[in-house]
Design a protein around this nucleic acid. Structure first.
Lengths: 237, 237
DNA sequence: GCAAAAGTGTTTGGGTTACACCCATGC
DNA sequence: GCATGGGTGTAACCCAAACACTTTTGC
């Protein structure tokens, strides 16, 4: 049943990688999507940047593997984690010798903007703006593009924005998240109604003081319903 | 880099399975979703029904593996094929000895109703109504449920219905497909407008004769755009 | 003519967009 | 008071649902 070692070619090996998103203020103060990459220290693609990932341990669930790799490279816990896709094309690695074929199950994750300030950064771990990536190893540019596409799609019909925000927040902050992810300005009035009508968010009753304008209401996500609709797959499948 | 054989526990092995949908007329003439299952001939779950699948060959792309398994069990070619999800939880198999841990990358497929009439059926391959499945092996009930959810969702904002239909078809046939998949009646007038407005379908100019009412226009799918929107993943990733 | 489905027209209501306007605070 | 964003109101518009009605065939 298990793969015979006697066979000429070994079975494809399995890796788990993660696309990790957060929002960071850029030079002009606006929030922008950022993600951490690690520098490869061996062939193929030695010296190029790649998604954090590694082989799947035999006693580890897929999502756990993604989360622990996330923790390991950034020191952070994911606020949201979802499987993205399994990439297994034969031509993913250019040399493509059958002996080292790898199928990667890729997850994508969100980490809060506040936590992300404390993220690990080093010689081999660096955060990039999502729209200014260098040429990455393997098919990782495509993977990030796909993850971005999913994030943007899903933001519009789910409660994903929660993944970036602290416990309580103003509607302006929530709108900033949407504007940063979707990369377009939104009408504050209509945004408010959109958010209020879908019911995911509730006012705390408190207001944020210290601004030099009318103090805005603080809101909290309604914890009784989960972030997103995965259909029959509840959580963490 | 490749998995060491010396390690106490082998790496998880990789399998590809496929949920194959077609539409078949049931007793009362209405179309209903059906799918083929195969009977397991060894433990675990010996004698129970399961999704067609098998180990991934080292020189095979994931989608090719799914398609060839489809061909092998049904004798048919898929009209549509898309990756569904990678299932790899440790508790998928109840015994769950680490030595035979399997991660399954599951695809889902559509086959045309006409072709499906010629599908292979045997002692060990049987077609079931999608809403009347027995208790399946592993987590396959969940997998089918999820595939159904995706099919229903995607039908509404894509050209998936094409996967069931012959080259030319009437709007009534197209509507039948929608009604069968979504399991609810649709207003013919509004359905027509919906289809016409999205532009995926073009009139051939020919009409279907021999009905005992006004002869309906025959349509064809506009082949210039593909079935569905996978985002940055073009086709067959 | 009659039955049956094809195909068209029309009304209505809900939801989104654009934008004007008032409110409450710091300075 | 004034500037600044918070927050409310509203008219225009678009789109989808409901349903009445006309058209074209076989019998």
């Amino acid at each position: 049943m298990s793969t015979s070692v006697a066979s000429a070619i070994e079975a494809p090996s399995l890796a788990v990688s993660t696309v990790i998103f957060t929002l960071r203020p850029c030079e002009d103060g606006q929030l922008k999507l950022a993600l951490p990459l690690v520098k490869r220290i061996r062939a193929p693609f030695e010296g190029q940047w790649a998604l954090p990932g590694g082989p799947l341990k035999p006693d580890e669930d897929l999502a756990d593997a993604a989360a622990s790799k996330l923790k390991q490279t950034t020191g952070l816990e994911p606020r949201y984690l979802e499987q993205l896709y399994a990439f297994g094309n034969l031509d993913r690695s250019p040399m493509s010798k059958l002996e080292d074929r790898v199928v990667s199950i890729v997850y994508w994750a969100l980490v809060g903007t506040v936590e992300a300030e404390k993220a690990i950064e080093s010689e081999n771990v660096h955060w990039f703006w999502a729209d200014e990536l260098p040429k990455l190893a393997f098919d990782h540019n495509l993977i990030v593009e796909y993850a971005l596409w999913r994030l943007r799609n899903k933001l519009e019909y789910s409660r994903l924005a929660h993944g970036f925000l602290p416990e309580t927040f103003t509607l302006a902050q929530l709108r900033e998240v949407y504007e940063a992810v979707l990369n377009k300005p939104l009408d504050p009035a209509n945004f408010r109604r959109m958010v209020e009508s879908n019911g995911a968010v509730v006012a705390t009753g408190e207001r944020l003081a210290g601004t030099r304008h009318r103090p805005p209401q603080l809101y909290r996500y309604d914890s009784s319903i989960d972030l997103t609709d995965l259909g029959p797959l509840g959580e963490k499948q």
